[in-house]
């Protein structure tokens, strides 16, 4: 038995916590069914194209412009959410004030609303004749039907990811370490920079990654507010839909594959960064 246990890596954990084989089996089958096989299909469908067809599709000027907007916009939106999501999470964790529960529940709204509804609401609000769009137009900022509109929608749908990831990490941080830093002579900026942020860095990175990933794939809320002008405000998911509507399935999956690879590299590097920052604190 002992030799078997040593030679078979899946049996390395004997007895103590039973069910390892079973749960790992379920995990792999489930992930295959739900995630891997559909993604594999994407690659297989794309393989119908010749290399030059593939290259032609994904380097089309209109497609490249959409990549730039989708990835760039998602990055900006995730960064904005990181800063303000941190502040929201901080306020919700550290202070008690009347209405805190309501504010806390508000954070989840972008999760719960159908994205089309949020898209229409944001458009109505930021359009030229909207409550916010009007005044912004007055100072020369065109919010809806512009790249900024895209980013506004991506910020909206990404916020809960950052807040909900950071909340438990901040709650876990005792208020005493701030007092310790202060007693050692650190001012608020030094405490924030040297003590608080490094301690919650893994959660910060996770929240950022989730908000980014969600934004890259977002469709419903963006298409209303963006105006969908080719080369300017057309996001990649919209281009994919357009191709599908023209029955260009291979073209659609080719674009999807590129988006997928980009996102995967991005998430992987964040994960590695996170591993490194966690290793430092454990």
């Amino acid at each position: 038995m002992a030799t078997i246990a040593r030679s078979n890596p899946f049996k390395r954990r004997p007895g103590r916590i039973p069910g390892f084989g079973l749960t790992l089996g379920i995990t792999l089958s489930y992930l295959s069914l739900i995630v891997l096989i559909p993604l594999l299909g994407l690659f297989i469908k794309t393989a119908e194209l010749t290399w030059s067809e593939f290259w032609g599709t994904i380097t089309d000027a209109r497609v490249l412009a959409s990549f730039k907007l989708s990835l760039g916009g998602s990055l900006i939106a995730a960064l904005v959410n990181l800063v303000f999501g941190f502040i929201v999470a901080w306020v919700l964790v550290r202070y008690s004030f009347p209405g805190r529960k309501i504010v806390d529940a508000l954070v989840d709204l972008p999760f719960a609303m159908p994205t089309a509804v949020s898209g229409i609401a944001l458009t109505a609000l930021y359009a030229q004749n909207g409550w916010l769009g009007g005044p912004l137009e007055g100072v020369g900022i065109k919010a809806a039907f512009s790249r900024m509109g895209v980013i506004i929608a991506l910020i909206f749908i990404g916020l809960p990811f950052v807040v909900r990831t950071l909340q438990p990490a901040l709650a876990d941080l005792e208020a005493e370490i701030e007092e310790a830093a202060a007693s050692l002579g650190a001012n608020r900026i030094q405490t924030l920079r040297r003590v608080i942020i490094p301690a919650v860095l893994p959660a910060v990175l996770t929240g950022f990654a989730l908000a980014f990933a969600r934004a890259v794939g977002e469709y419903g809320s963006v298409v209303f507010i963006s105006g969908n002008m080719p080369m300017r405000t057309e996001i990649t998911p919209l281009l994919i839909i357009t191709k599908l509507e023209q029955f260009d399935y291979a073209g659609a999956t080719a674009i999807a594959v590129v988006l997928l690879v980009f996102s995967f590299i991005m998430l992987l590097s964040i994960n590695i960064l996170q591993l490194w920052s966690t290793a430092r604190s454990r």
């Binding site: 005792e174 005493e176 370490i177 007092e179 310790a180 830093a181 202060a182 007693s183 050692l184 002579g185 650190a186 001012n187 003590v195 490094p198 301690a199 860095l201 430092r280 604190s281």
Partner: peptide, 18 residues
């Protein structure tokens, strides 16, 4: 507190864990 130059030791240590 940060200008008082006091040494403060907490019951639960309050060390910076990172």
């Amino acid at each position: 507190v940060r200008k008082r130059r006091v040494g403060f030791v907490f019951q639960h240590y309050a060390l910076f864990r990172h």
